[in-house]
Computed example of a mutant assay.
Amino acid sequence: AAHRAPALISTMRALAVFLPVALLAASPPDPNDKPTTARWMAHNIVWGVLGTTSTRSQGSKPGDAFGNPYSFADVNGVPYFYVSDMDSSMIDLNLSSGSGGRASLAISEAALGTAIKACDIAAPPLGDPENPPCARLVLSGPMSKVKANSSEETSAKAALFAAHPSFKLYPPGHMFYVARMDIDSIWLIDAYGGPAYVAPDDYFKANSSSAAASSRNFQDGPPAGPSDKALCPVTGASINITAKTPAVGFKNGQKLFFSSEEAAKKYRDSPRDFWLAPHDTPLSGMDGARGLPDLRGTRVQCPMSGENMTVSMKTPRVDHKNGQAVYFCCHGCIMAFWRDPASLIVA
C-alpha cells in the first residue's frame, strides 16, 4: 500500500540511543517479513500480557477478558510459562483438570526499551507503544500442562530459568509447573496499514532461516567460540567450566571463573587489579575479539540495573585480564561498577 513505508519503518525501529537501556540479539527484521518478525519478537521479548476469560467473581466478573502480565520463554517458537494453580489466570484456565482453556499472549516491542525509537515516548514526534512501527504481537491458542519429568519439561525449564533466574527461588509449596501455549492464531502489527495474520506454519518455519530468531547470532563478529572454556583472570590458567568451577558471582547472576578458590579470593579482595588495563594486551586471535568464554547469544542480566540483555559484540562490558568480561546494560552501570565493584559482588 502507498501509505506503508518499509524503509522508513526499518530505520525508525533500528535506530538506537547511545548505550541503550536494552540491547537486542539482532536488529529487527524487515517489517515486510511478518513470520520472521513474529519469531524475532517471541524470542527476544521475555514478558507480555496473558489474556484469559475470567471464571472468577473476585477482581473481575465471569466472562470478562482478563489480562495478567506474565513472564515466558520461547523454545523453538513455542511460549512456555512457569505457573501455579494459585494464580488467577491459571484458575481461569484450569490446566490441572486436564482440559485447559484458550489464552492469548500479547507482547510489545516496547518491552525492549528505548533501543526501539518507534516505541520510545521520549522520541518525538511519533514514539509510542501504539505507534504501528513499534511492533505488537498477539499469539493465541489452547494452553496445556507440560508432563512432569519429560524431556519437554527439561528443555522448557532450562529456557525459563535462563531468562528469569528468580524462578529458581519460587516457593515449592506453591506447586509451580511448566505450561505451554499451542499457537493456532497469530496477529501482528509492525507497520502502518493494519494487522497481518501470520499462518502458524509460516511462523514455525521462520526459525531455521532467521538469524534474528536464532539463539546464537554471530553476524556481527567472529565465528562461534567455546562457551565452556575460560582463562583465569588471576593466574591465566586454562579452565573447563563446570558446576564445580570456582567462581565469583555478581548481582543478578553473572559469574567470573577461576582456577582455584585462592584465585577467586584474590579477585574478591581487589577486583581492579584484574581488569584489563589500557596498557595490557588482550588475548590474541578470535578469542580476543569475541571473548573467552564466547557468550554471544546468551541472555544475562545487568549486575547493576537487572536489565535483561542478550550478549552481542555491542554489549557494554568490563573486560578482565585473559578474556573474561562482566556485561552491563549501559555506561552508567559500568561507572557504578568502577566506583564500587565490591557492591555488586555477591559470592
Rank of each mutant, 00 (worst) to 15 (best):
H3M: 11
S10N: 10
M12K: 13
A14F: 00
F18P: 03
P20H: 00
A25N: 08
P28Y: 03
P29M: 08
N32V: 08
K34E: 11
A38N: 07
W40C: 04
V46N: 10
V46T: 15
G51W: 10
S54W: 06
S54Q: 15
N68E: 15
P69A: 05
S71F: 07
V75P: 01
V75M: 14
G77Q: 04
Y80W: 09
F81T: 01
Y82K: 01
S88K: 15
M90I: 13
I91H: 11
L93W: 03
G98W: 05
G98F: 07
G101W: 07
A106L: 13
S108N: 08
T114K: 10
I116T: 05
C119H: 07
A122W: 12
A122G: 10
E130P: 05
E130V: 08
A135K: 02
P142Y: 09
E153I: 14
S155G: 12
K157R: 13
A158R: 12
A162E: 09
A163W: 11
S166M: 11
S166P: 03
F167I: 08
L169T: 10
Y170C: 13
P171G: 13
D184P: 02
W187N: 02
L188E: 10
L188T: 10
I189S: 05
D190Q: 14
P195N: 11
P195K: 05
V198Q: 01
V198S: 00
D202V: 07
Y203Q: 14
A206H: 11
A206K: 05
S208I: 11
S209Q: 10
S214H: 05
R216N: 09
F218R: 03
D220N: 15
G236R: 01
N240M: 10
I241A: 02
T242K: 06
K244Q: 13
T245V: 03
P246R: 08
A247M: 12
G249T: 04
K251C: 02
E261N: 14
E262Q: 03
A264Q: 04
Y267E: 03
S270R: 09
S270P: 07
R272I: 03
D280C: 09
G285A: 04
D287F: 06
G291D: 15
G291C: 07
P293E: 05
R296S: 02
R296C: 00
R296E: 04
Q301P: 01
G306P: 00
N308K: 09
M309Y: 02
S312C: 05
T315M: 00
K321S: 02
G323L: 00
A325L: 13
C330A: 11
C330E: 08
M335W: 13
M335D: 09
D340F: 06
I345C: 02
A347Q: 09
